[in-house]
Design a protein around this nucleic acid. Structure first.
Lengths: 166, 166
DNA sequence: CTTGGAATGTCAACAACACTGACGTATTGT
DNA sequence: ACAATACGTCAGTGTTGTTGACATTCCAAG
């Protein structure tokens, strides 16, 4: 074990104490990560679930409910409630699939895109500030660790989305 | 502005596309981050709120309710519900403060420490795997970006805790 | 072509956990 | 004495997750 690829005491970054700091950093950072969109959503009587749905529908217009389910990792019933309010409020359109009429293809309306943009902007602003403060090398490391932390099936979704469109 | 510390086109890492990837990485990674403890908690009819309480009480034995509140960022009613079940189940002890009898100092019992350990181990295992896969430089960057993403008051808590004990 | 199973999505009821608001109690400090 | 602080609790509400039951659509086996 001592003669691993990165020999000897270079493994100090794997101590329990270092890992704990990473865990606590994730916890506190995620709170910051969601804070700004949460404030906007609260005004509109929406929650994070609405944000996630709007984000991923905007990211892949025409996606099906099933696909959205496997990205979000919730039950279809839970997603459906959120989707219903978004449709009622005119932010999302659900249209019957052309090849398979069991499926529903989901799209943002103009209003939906506007909300998505507003939420994105808020979240991006904070992310941009963090990136700028930390610098490009740090950002590369940030992404590497996050990717290594994902479950395999989620990592698949992430990769699919990563190089989609621009 | 073009002659900043990192001049010219080194700013490509601040494009909206890069930021979006970071946002999605945070989302997917956080799911992985909580997945293992969540499975354990589900067995015990506990939730993430219990995990957080147990974690931070274990981290700062004797902490007060008020301090825990400002770390967790929830209302006292919400925390109280969780704390009550933990005390009833014999995982946490609440004792009247010695210098200020209005305060309650919170401690883990042996059973509480056992649960905390079990949850920590699960979470650390994944974090360790991610750290190992990404390497020490990536880990440093990961922590830098996360710290820059925190709200200032949470960052304060993070720093307080960071160099506590060992 | 019909029928039965699988896939997709919807409706209803319930639990967990967050929130606000109001109130009570004990303690502290002015 | 009086105001402020720390904590706990009761009641009510909203979001988000869950399971169970059900309708529709598709497809393939008979």
């Amino acid at each position: 074990m001592a003669e691993g690829p990165e020999g000897g005491q270079a493994l100090l970054f794997l101590t329990d104490d270092q890992l704990r700091k990473g865990i606590e950093a994730m916890f506190f950072a995620y709170r910051g990560f969601t804070a700004d969109p949460d404030r906007i959503l609260a005004e509109l009587a929406y929650g994070r679930a609405h944000h996630r749905a709007v984000h991923f529908i905007g990211r892949r217009p025409g996606t099906t409910v099933n696909n959205l389910l496997s990205i979000l990792g919730v039950t279809k019933q839970s997603l459906n409630r959120v989707l219903r309010t978004l449709i009622e409020d005119g932010l999302v359109i659900s249209e019957v699939g052309r090849s398979d009429k069991r499926e529903r293809n989901l799209y943002l309306t103009d209003a939906g895109r506007a909300l998505e943009q507003r939420l994105s902007d808020a979240q991006r602003d904070r992310m941009r500030a963090a990136y700028r403060a930390a610098g490009p090398e740090a950002v590369a490391g940030f992404r590497q660790v996050l990717e290594a932390m994902m479950d395999e099936d989620l990592h698949r979704h992430y990769r699919e989305m990563k190089d989609l469109k621009v």
